[in-house]
Design a protein around this nucleic acid. Structure first.
Lengths: 240, 240
DNA sequence: TGTACATCAGTGAACGCGCGTTCACTGATGTAC
DNA sequence: TGTACATCAGTGAACGCGCGTTCACTGATGTAC
């Protein structure tokens, strides 16, 4: 499922750079230069890339079908051909975000170390992802814009939540799957997720700057997160 | 500072009910019925009430100057006279939200009981406020729409954060004010706030429904919060 | 290998919509004398 | 108490903007024979 996205990311960018209109596709060009044919060939993926750039540059409010088409250097009616409407495009983009997020979280969880060290690594990876992709993170958690009935989005998001719940609950019981939870397990999952999600949101919304300013010199968002987790994580795994 | 808002809330609603246009102000009416004069008399406050109704009904995206004027039963150019633009109106509304939030938090913190019981009460009050005013809570934490240079908003928000930081940090040191924090104090504040803000956001975004569904029968958002806090709060006050 | 033709992918003009903002206006109020 | 007049508060028409969506179109591709 991640394959398509990975391929796209590895490809050279065909879309126009930010703010620069692509020249007419069929305009004469020096021989040997790569062609920009009338048919784009991978417009769907190019539109998703363009959408991500718009999202991170202009925020969720700036993410419109026309803005994406503009960013991709394509007529504004073209996106409709690939995504029925804005919800469709935005939902596919969120699916990509979840998929990448899953990859990052999985990598962090597979590093060597004690269970507590791995839990810390996952939390740091969680916040790091959101810091590196603030627009995307906001999109992923702004439910009202998304269509969760789309299989791609549903599955990618499901995998994220299952991974998170599993990594917490699996420590007390064997089953990481999707069935019944004890109240202690449910509370442990809610606690871990609330802590890291809340910290992330406060950080992205600039609410922590005041606390950081009043902290000892040299305190960063990451080191404060670390201090916060160190005061918490010994209690985190109910079984460990 | 809360006085004005309180007064407004106590007044009978003069604005048109949702979706119903006010009849012309000067239209003939039976003698003895309360007049709706050409000059509204308290349009500024009526617009803020209307804005809150629009926000909770249609969400942040539906909150426009024209929608607010419509809701208040007034011409769409009228709001400009009281609030320069949408940012102005929305910032004033957020200020009211913070002020009410402060009142609720203060009341919860003044109830009798042990420090831990009071901390629990504050956390419950925090989430309850957001559940009762989801649109408002979202507005308060969606920084990009607000103008924090407005004194009313700046002060009300400042008071919220100071109250929160103070209620956590004051337990280990005497000073609740605005100066330097130890890393442990900063971590304790970040932890308490992240936990409760994160839980709130996940709840409002519907991310906890799956966890609640898989929890023991009868588990509610409030009881899960309680279980989560009980596993956490013994560590919350560093000094207590 | 070459030709005909169906299908696909992107274009650009046009439409209607709700928005914020401006502006001359008018109805109501309040103050000076 | 009464009149004149300045000021205030809200109106409604008009403007330009960016948006989503539709539509006939055309350039490019790929397949059948």
């Amino acid at each position: 499922m991640t394959t398509k996205t990975e391929q796209v990311r590895a490809q050279p960018r065909r879309a126009a750079a930010s703010g620069v209109r692509a020249r007419p596709r069929t305009a004469g060009r020096p021989a040997g230069e790569a062609a920009t044919p009338y048919h784009h060939g991978a417009l769907r993926d190019a539109l998703l890339e363009a959408a991500e750039r718009v999202l991170e540059r202009d925020g969720l409010a700036g993410l419109t079908l026309r803005a994406v088409a503009r960013e991709a250097g394509v007529s504004h009616a073209a996106p409709t051909h690939h995504f029925k409407d804005l919800t469709g495009l935005v939902s596919e983009l969120a699916a990509i975000g979840f998929t990448r997020f899953n990859v990052a979280m999985k990598a962090a969880g597979e590093q060597p170390g004690t269970p507590i060290e791995r839990a810390m690594a996952r939390a740091h990876a969680y916040v790091a992802y959101a810091q590196a992709n603030p627009g995307m993170y906001g999109l992923m958690f702004r439910t009202e814009r998304l269509d969760y009935s789309r299989p791609s989005l549903h599955d990618a998001a499901e995998a994220s939540f299952a991974g998170l719940a599993g990594s917490v609950a699996a420590r007390s019981e064997g089953q990481a799957g999707g069935e019944q939870l004890s109240i202690d397990q449910a509370a442990a999952i809610a606690r871990a997720w609330s802590l890291v999600h809340g910290y992330t949101m406060l950080l992205l919304d600039g609410r922590l700057t005041d606390i950081l300013r009043r902290s000892p010199a040299g305190t960063t968002a990451d080191s404060l997160l670390d201090a916060m987790l160190r005061a918490t994580v010994p209690k985190l795994p109910p079984g460990a």
